[in-house]
Every structure is written in C-alpha cells, then in structure tokens.
Design a protein around this nucleic acid. Structure first.
Lengths: 150, 150
DNA sequence: TATAAATAAGATAAAATAGTCTTAATTCAG
DNA sequence: CTGAATTAAGACTATTTTATCTTATTTATA
C-alpha cells in the first residue's frame, strides 16, 4: 500500500473537515462516526495533524478540531508528510539503498517517472479540491453502504 | 511503500537470476550473499516463487533455483502477484471499501490514472529487460558500496 | 550405503503497524 | 466552584510483517 492506514484516516478526516466549510470546531466524535473510524484511534491521528499545524484543536465544550488554514492552502502532500513522514515515495522501487542517476537500479527510469507523477499530484491537489470533487459523500457513508450490501 | 519488502527481495533475486543466463541451478546461499539478504528469509521468499512456478528448484548437490521460463516471459507483475497477491494497487487511494466510477472517492480520477500507469509498467516490463538495464550490478553490490561510504 | 549438499516446512521471535483503554488537562456553563 | 465536554497523552493489546532457527526431505557422489 502506498499510504499507511493511519495516513488514509487523516486524509479522509481532513477532506471531510474541508467539506464542512465554516470556521466552527467539529468534535472528533462526530468525525469518527461519519467516517466510521474508531474514535480513540482517530484522536491520535488528528493529534499529529494538530502538532503539524494542519489542524487547530480546542478543548472543552464546543471544542473540537478544524482546519488551521484555508482548505485551498492545504495540500494532499501536507497531510501525507505529517503522518507518513517525508520519505514517502523517495525510496527506490527495488529497495536499493543506493539508487540514483549515477547508479540506478534496473527499474530506476520507469519508477522515477511514476514517482514524479504521484508526487506532483500530491503536491498539487488541495483539500478544497478534494472536498469539491464529486461524491465527497463517499468519504463517510460508503462503509454503511458496504455494510448494507452484505 | 508500494511493494512489501518480501516482494522486493523476490524481485531482486529474480532479476539477478535473469542476469545469470544459463540454465544451471544457482544456490539460494549464493543469491543471498550477492543480494545481502538473510539466507533463511530469502529461502522462504523463493519458495513462494517456486510454488507459483516462476522458479524451479532442485534439492541436493548441484541443486538450487533457476527461472522456470525464459526471462522474457516473466513479467515484473508475475513476481509481484506471486508474493504480494493480486490486490496490489486495486484498492482506493483513500481506502474506501466502495470506490468506483459510479461512486468515486474524491481522489478517484487522479489515482485511477496513476494506477493504470504503474500496472501497465509492471505488466509490460519483463525480467530480461530489467536484467539488461544499465547497472544491474546495483542489484547486488550497492549494499557494499553503501557500507563503505559510512 | 553413508555423507554432505541442498531446498522445504514449520516453529518461534522481533519489530512495525494498528487499535483500545485509561487518565490527565483544559474549558465552558450553570 | 463544580460538573460535563472535550482534546492530550500515555500505557497497553492485537495484528501483520519481517526475520531467525530448527528439523525434515531430497539427491548426488564417493
């Protein structure tokens, strides 16, 4: 998998927050229920995003979390780096410790091109774009839809 | 990471085998030393490739493993599927259980395009092409080079 | 036929990732 | 000031992945 589960949870929560435009704090409880993610686990994930100043949090009644910046100013990549670190997609596809233009692994050229595309996408796509995309509702209700089908 | 470590070991060993053209069996011990991978672990990985009939193995003196087909007839994808299974790159980038054209997640379009490229590459590139690529030696000696540098 | 060379198989351990639970700290409202 | 609502922090557990170790099986050859 390209991104860790933890990271995916963070992304889904961030996009959901972006789709709830308005400057109010949203409780993690509410997010966890809409996203069908364990409340405690999501809490941890969002704490990390708060530390990275992607989210802002507030304790106590009427507290919760919200985006720390405008959704248009937060990229997919910001969230990924905060949670999965900035080595994402930097490694060689064959896991070689030394793989560069000078000393490329056999897959170097193909992989470099693809990495470029993915990184470019991550750097370019912002949370508001994701939130605006058709079927943002998939973010939170698909688990329910899925459950119903079984 | 896109591919598991186990899978990467399998790929490196397969490419190395492909570069040792000739129909002789090569011992896993020799492969493990050239690749700097634990002998026992590599043994397990290659057992899986043998089960999938990508490799052929032979016990006893002069035994070892070799490619079961011509290197030009084994794709990168063959090895990946054997080890990481065929769900590789099938999941939604945001981990949604339902994400399709009808009900796409916010990242669906971008991700579908990139997945297509990667899958296409994996399906297209064969072991002989990888073995023929410049610096196949990176496959096995870069660990040593790396160690020297430190 | 005995011994050594090899892979196969399975038990076990270690490390990383994922998830749960409890307690602490903060803040609002009455 | 007290109690309830909330995030923060940290201990703990579970699962998966990675790695190691031991024993079994097969095979060549002296």
């Amino acid at each position: 998998m390209l991104l860790s589960n933890t990271c995916i949870y963070g992304l889904r929560a961030s996009v959901l927050l972006a789709s709830k435009h308005g400057d109010k704090f949203v409780t993690i409880r509410e997010l966890s229920e809409e996203l069908n993610i364990s409340f405690h686990f999501l809490t941890k994930v969002l704490q990390q995003l708060t530390k990275s100043e992607i989210l802002q949090s507030y304790k106590g009644p009427n507290g919760g979390v919200k985006l720390a910046k405008k959704a248009s100013e937060i990229t997919f990549m910001d969230v990924v780096i905060s949670i999965d670190g900035n080595n994402i997609m930097k490694e060689c596809a064959l896991g070689m410790p030394v793989c560069s233009e000078l000393k490329p692994c056999p897959l170097h050229d193909q992989w470099t091109a693809m990495k470029g595309n993915i990184l470019n996408m991550m750097n370019t796509v912002s949370l508001d774009q994701l939130a605006a995309n058709r079927h943002t509702d998939t973010l939170y209700n698909s688990y329910i839809a899925h459950a119903r089908k079984e």
